[in-house]
Design a protein around this nucleic acid. Structure first.
Length: 415
RNA sequence: GGGGGUGUAGCUCAGUUGGUUAGAGCGAUCGCCUGUCACGCGAUAGGUCGAGGGUUCGAGUCCCUUCACUCCCGCCA
């Protein structure tokens, strides 16, 4: 018998029935029925339910052990009766009848429970990082990250890339972000910088003729955090190729990204070949150089509508004559929204620094007409002209400046 | 650097218009319970209401200062 375990907590099943085994792990959860105790033992690989009855000499001791105590259990694999199977668990067809146990590590009272889906503030999670990383979801995320990175390495190698490490302590490079600085003991008053990206070193590699380089590279930037941006330090897949054009690089990255998502995600992959949009097209249609193409809304050009004689929106007409343009969003299913919905959007636009938001909804009862603050300025004909863009529109928003529109996309999409 | 929000039990949170002894769930401790898998039931312990100052007969609640966390802006190829 091995000292700590013969199996891990995720591998025993009905085929191991009657085997004498040993497991080591953390007590994930206890269910104490007084004369019968269930104890879920957890390790990196999974959970196994162990069971002991009050006729056993160790029953009272095991009952007293607190969660997260690390123990070794010697026992026998037994088949669960049909009505006590747990299909949620890989090991749910069996359980371990405890023969003896040994405490490997005790615990104080836990500041945060491991067995819980409750969310905790980052502050408390980082303070007790070792407990946070024991929690199921976080633990599995870390395992997933390891597998993704390892997969990326093997894919890059298959594509003929060589992996290089580059130095961390370096001199400052003239990039946009502020450098992290590390004082030098040997040169008092002088500092190393941490690399914002492996820029200089990979260029050295490439001019030395190594042809294809990649690195899962640590990058350090001394800038403030954001909700979606870790402060200071992150990793990026960094790559360089020799004697190639833009398309060659797209081919490598597209293949890699689709393979990663095919392997690790169940989500539908929308594009094997990434859509290519020029910067100017993206700015005109979406108002951003990183559009989310799952969002069907695009920004339309309405300057000509406002030039019509049967449209009497004088403020915009005046601005157009000075060379401004009018662009707008068409939103669906907004006709029956309460006034507060529109006021909310208007207030939001003002919060963003705009003077306000011109909008109207379209009524289609007897004749087509515009409703809302600026609806009366539009003739039936001009609205029909707008509806050529989409038959299903019910609201239209105008703004004179592109920047405000792009963020409106998001808020309307969500509503 | 600027603006907003939050801070109450170990954790997650409630606390009305300023008014008696500040509550709940989970966790902990103790007791009961032989088929649970978020087991169930009962009891007990646990509080500098972030800190400091002020207003008031009286402050978790109002005001000022300060600290921490958090979100947004700035910043980040």
């Amino acid at each position: 018998m091995k000292k700590y375990r013969t199996h891990n907590c995720g591998e025993l099943n009905i085929k191991d029935k009657d085997k004498k085994i040993s497991l080591s792990g953390w007590i994930n959860k206890k269910r104490d029925h007084g004369n019968l105790l269930f104890l879920d033992l957890r390790d990196n690989y999974g959970l196994t339910q162990c069971v002991i009855e009050n006729t056993h000499k160790n029953f009272k001791e095991l009952e007293k052990l607190s969660l997260e105590t690390v123990i070794k259990i010697d026992g026998q694999v037994i088949e669960r009766s049909k009505d006590t199977l747990n299909k949620e668990l890989k090991t749910g067809e069996i359980e371990i009848s405890i023969i003896s146990y040994e405490i490997l590590g005790t615990t104080k009272e836990l500041p945060i429970p491991v067995f819980s889906d409750q969310e905790y503030s980052e502050e408390i999670r980082l303070k007790y990082r070792f407990l946070d990383l024991r929690r199921k979801k976080i633990h599995q995320n870390i395992i997933l990250r390891s597998k993704v990175i390892s997969f990326i390495r093997s894919e890059m190698e298959k594509l003929g890339f060589l992996e290089f490490q580059t130095p961390i302590l370096t001199s400052s490079s003239p990039e946009g972000a502020r450098d992290f600085l590390v004082p030098s003991r040997l040169n008092p008053g002088k500092f190393y910088a941490l690399p914002q990206a492996p820029q200089q070193f990979k260029q050295l590699i490439m001019v030395s003729g190594f042809d294809k380089y990649f690195q899962i590279a640590p990058c350090f930037r001394d800038e403030d955090a954001r909700a979606d941006r870790s402060p200071g330090e992150f990793y990026q897949l960094d790559l360089e190729m020799s004697f190639v054009e833009q398309e060659d690089i797209f081919n490598v990255v597209e293949k890699l990204m689709t393979n990663v998502f095919k392997k690790f995600s169940n989500k539908k992959i929308l594009y094997e070949k990434f859509p290519q949009i020029t910067y100017s097209d993206a700015m005109i249609k979406y108002g951003t150089d990183k559009p989310d193409l799952r969002n069907p809304i695009i920004i339309n050009e309405f300057t000509d509508i406002f030039k019509r004689d049967d449209v009497n929106f004088e403020i915009f007409k005046k601005l157009i004559s000075k060379g401004n343009i009018v662009r707008g969003l068409i939103a669906k299913k907004t006709k029956d929204k309460p006034r507060s919905f529109f006021d909310g959007i208007d207030k939001w636009a003002k919060d963003q620094g705009a003077s306000g938001l011109a909008y109207f909804t379209i009524e289609k009862d007897k004749e087509i007409k515009g409703k809302g603050p600026v609806g009366k300025f539009f003739s039936s004909d001009s609205i029909q002209e707008i509806m050529k863009i989409s038959k299903h529109i019910s609201m239209i928003l105008f703004a004179m400046e592109l920047n405000y529109l792009l963020e409106l996309l998001e808020i309307i999409y969500l509503n």
